[in-house]
Structures are given as C-alpha cells and as structure tokens.
C-alpha cells in the first residue's frame, strides 16, 4: 500500500494538474522576462540620461527586493490601492518583472561587449539608431546574453514554486495538499523535487542546444 501510494490515480492527476499550472506560470513569465530584459537592457545602454536613470531604478528595486516581497506586493499589496489581481496573474506579473530585471543585467553586458566598430560601421552606412540596434547589435548581443539569460530561466523554473505562497496552487502547492492529507511529506516532496530536477535539467539541455544552434562559426562562443 505504502509503495503504491504514488500510483493512485487521484495523486497522479493532482500532481499532473499542478505541473500544468507550473508550466503555465513559467512559459509566459519566461517570454515576458526575456522581452522586458532586452528592452530594459537596451535602454540602459542606448537611452538618454533620464531613461537610463529610470531603467537603473527599476533594476535596483526589482533585483533588490526579495521575490517573495514582490509577489506579496502584487497580490496582497495592490488591493490597498484598489487593484485586485487573481493569484495566477499576480504570480506571472511578479515573475516577469523580477526575471526581466535580472536578465537586463546580462543584456546590458552583452550590448556593451559589442565592439564599437560595429556601431560606427552601421552609422557610416546610414542606419538609424533603432535599425542599428535591431539589425546590427541585437543579433550579436542576443547570442552573448543567452547563457546568462538561460540561467535566469532556470532560476525562474525553481522560483515558480513561490507562487504557492500567494495561493496559486501549482506543483509545490499540490504537493503540500497531498502531503498534508496523507502525512507522506518525504515521499511527496522527493517526487516533487525530482519533477523540478527534470524540468531544470531539460531546460539547461535545451538552452545549450539553442546556443550551439545559434552559434556563428568563427565567432567565439560564450558561457
């Protein structure tokens, strides 16, 4: 009986449901995080003094506050000014903004590492600023930022478990419910931990494949 616990259909279906919620949390947060990260990162390099200051302030706050605090602000704090977000939306918002701030650091570094000759050549060829960023520096910076940004996505997978703390019942939350019902904490969280290990390892493997695929021969590979 004890050994068969994890083959009981209700336990499996509850965990699968939780896993699905986790994936639904992670996927949009990763996409928004990358978009925010590249936007903020580009603004921090190419913006004017005012834009730079605002972007740096954003990064300071969102990297400096613990993610739990940020999630609590979005979920429990916003009703204070009359905005009520469902737990899922608050979680995705919190993950995206926090992840974006961290990613922007790698993106900024990547933009700065693009040789100045590249931007000068683009300007000499009559590229506008936006065109230069989009077609000349971004494709190079993207490849250089990829290892760092990939790491952030792996962090995101792990931190998605914090959604449980603002009552968004994903994989960890389902695990907590199952464990509290059955008193099988060790087994349950071993299985949950294994699922996260599979997710993070798979993500790491996929990101390495992506890096290899995007690699331009003759350019140094980073990371």
């Amino acid at each position: 009986m004890r050994e068969l616990f994890f083959f009981q259909p209700d336990v499996v279906s509850a965990l699968m449901k939780g896993l699905w919620v986790s994936v639904q949390l992670i996927a949009p947060s990763a996409v928004f995080g990358v978009i925010i990260g590249f936007t903020i990162g580009a603004l921090r390099v190419y913006g004017n003094a005012f834009i730079k200051a605002v972007a740096n302030g954003y990064v300071l706050i969102f990297r400096g506050f613990p993610l739990v605090v940020q999630l609590f602000i979005w979920y429990f704090g916003l009703p204070y000014i009359g905005i009520y977000l469902p737990p899922f939306v608050a979680a995705v918002l919190g993950f995206s903004l926090c992840s974006g701030a961290y990613q922007s650091e790698y993106v900024r570094g990547a933009f700065l590492s693009v040789k100045t000759g590249q931007t000068m050549a683009a300007r000499a060829l009559g590229f506008s600023n936006i065109k230069m960023i989009l077609f000349v520096t971004l494709p190079q910076a993207f490849r250089r930022a990829l290892p760092g940004c990939g790491n952030e996505i792996i962090y995101l997978i792990k931190y998605s478990s914090l959604a449980y703390m603002i009552t968004c019942i994903e994989l960890t939350g389902q695990g907590k419910i199952i464990a509290s019902d059955s008193f099988r904490y060790t087994e349950t969280f071993m299985v949950i931990g294994a699922v996260y290990l599979v997710l993070t390892s798979a993500a790491a493997w996929l990101l390495r494949r992506l890096e290899d695929r995007l690699h331009i021969p003759g350019f140094e590979q980073y990371g």
């Binding site: 931190y159 914090l162 960890t172 464990a179 060790t186 087994e187 349950t188 969280f189």
Partner: peptide, 15 residues
Amino acid sequence: RGVPLLVLLFLFYFG
C-alpha cells in the same frame, strides 16, 4: 541547484 528552495524546506522540515 536544481530543486526549489521551498520544496527543500518542506522536504527537510516536514519530511
């Protein structure tokens, strides 16, 4: 490095 902090806290504390 692969398992979330929250899961490890639950695993060690309750388990």
